[in-house]
Design a protein around this nucleic acid. Sequence first.
DNA 1: TAACTTCGTGCCGAGAGTACACTAACAAGT
DNA 2: ACTTGTTAGTGTACTCTCGGCACGAAGTTA
Lengths: 223, 223
Amino acid sequence: MKQAPANTRFAAVAVDIVIFTIIDDVLCVLLGIVDRPPHYQNIEACIGGLVEVNETTEAALHRHLQTKTTLQNLYIEQLYTFSEIERDKRNRVISVSYLGLVRQSEDVTSLPEGLRWCPVHELPKLAYDHSDMFAVAYSRLKGKLAYTTIAQFLLPKTFTLTELQRVYELITGAHIDKRNFRKKLLSLDVVKETGRMQEGMKNRPAALYTFKTTKLVELPLLT
Amino acid sequence: MKQAPANTRFAAVAVDIVIFTIIDDVLCVLLGIVDRPPHYQNIEACIGGLVEVNETTEAALHRHLQTKTTLQNLYIEQLYTFSEIERDKRNRVISVSYLGLVRQSEDVTSLPEGLRWCPVHELPKLAYDHSDMFAVAYSRLKGKLAYTTIAQFLLPKTFTLTELQRVYELITGAHIDKRNFRKKLLSLDVVKETGRMQEGMKNRPAALYTFKTTKLVELPLLT
DNA sequence: TAACTTCGTGCCGAGAGTACACTAACAAGT
DNA sequence: ACTTGTTAGTGTACTCTCGGCACGAAGTTA
C-alpha cells in the first residue's frame, strides 16, 4: 500500500467508495480490513487508495477497484469530499468519496481475502472517518431512491415487480402496498415487460420486466 | 497568488465557490478576473484558491473569501470535486467546489476591484472548468429550491411573500399563481408573520414575514 | 385433486393541486 | 377631496393523485 509523503506543502488526495449490494434480501456494504498500526488495527474501512498526480479521481477509483476486487459493472457517483485534518491519523489525506451500487446478478459473493459484505444494520465502527462516509452514502441512496430509478443498479437486468418493490422496502424500511406500487411504477413508463416469466418457481411465476434505459432517470417514484 | 509546486507526486488541492445573489430582480454570480498568462488572460472565473496542508477545505474557502471579498453571512454547501487532468492548464490542481448564497440585504454591491456580479443569463466563457462548475451549481440550486427552504438565503431576514415568490419565479423561470403559492407555503408552516409592514411604498404595503428557523428545511415547496 | 404459495388486478374516498377575479390599501396627482 | 394607479390579499370549484383495501388465477407439491 502506498503512503503519502510526509513533508509536502499539500495534502495527498485519496478516493474511497461505499459499495452497496443486496444479498439474500439484506442490504450490505463492502468492507476491507485495515492493518496500519498504530492507529488502525483490527478495524475495517471502505476500500480506496491514493490518487496519482496524472490521473483523475475517477481513474484512480477504477484502478483501485480493479486491483482490490473483481467487481464489474458498478454504478458509481461522486458523493462528498472529506478534508478534516485528523481524518487519517497517519498522514494528511483529503478523500473524495464515491457511492457504488452493484447488481445482485453480478458475481458479488466471490470476494478476495480481507473483504466482506457487511449488512448495513450490523456495521461496526470503521477506520478513518468512514463511518461518517457510510452515513452520507446511505442517506444519498435513500434520497435518490425516492426520485430516481437508481434501484435498477441493485437488481438484475430483468426482474419481477415484486423484486423491485422489495428493494424499496429494504432501503426505506417501510411497507409498500403492492397494487399502489405497481400502479405508480407503470404510470411512470420506465419499465417494460420482457415477455418472459420466472422459471423454477414452486408457485405462480411472475412476469419479468426490464428498465427501458440503463441510464438513471429522475422521476418521483415514491412520496 | 500562490502557485502549486511543479514536481510533487500528488496534485494540489484548491477550493472554488459559485456564489449567487439576487440584485435588482436578476440572479447573478460572483466572478473575478483571472490574469495568468499564457493560458488564462482576459477571462473570468469563480473565486477560490489553494488549500494548505494544515487546513480543511472549508477553512481554506473561508480564508480565501475573507481575503478576496467583504461578503459575510453566506450560506455554503459543498458541490462537487473536479479532477480532470487538464482542468487547469498550468498545474495539476484538483478543485473542491462549493455553492454559496448571499442575501440581498447584505452589502453585496461594494465589491473590490476585479470582481463583479454577472447575471446568470449573460455569463461569459469562464477560465479553467468553471463553466462546468457553474452549470453544476445552478442545477443544484434549482433542484434544492424545489424541496428545501434554500430560498431563504437569497432574501433579507424579513421579506414579503411576493418577494419570496419572486425568488422562485426567477430561478425556475416559471410563473406561479399567487394564491396557490401562498396557500402551499403557509400550509408548510415554515414562515411566520413579523407583525410589521413594508414602509415607504407608493402602494399598499405588504406584510413582512420571516422564516421560523435559519436552518435549511427539507420540504416539497414546489411540484 | 386438494393444499399451498405468490401473482396480478379495481374501486372508492380523501386530500392536494390547479385554475381563476375581485376588493382593499396606500400614494400621487389633479 | 376625489380620481387614478399600483400592488396586497383572499376563496371556490374542479381534477387528479394518493392511499387503503380483498380476492380469483396460476403454478408446484403431496
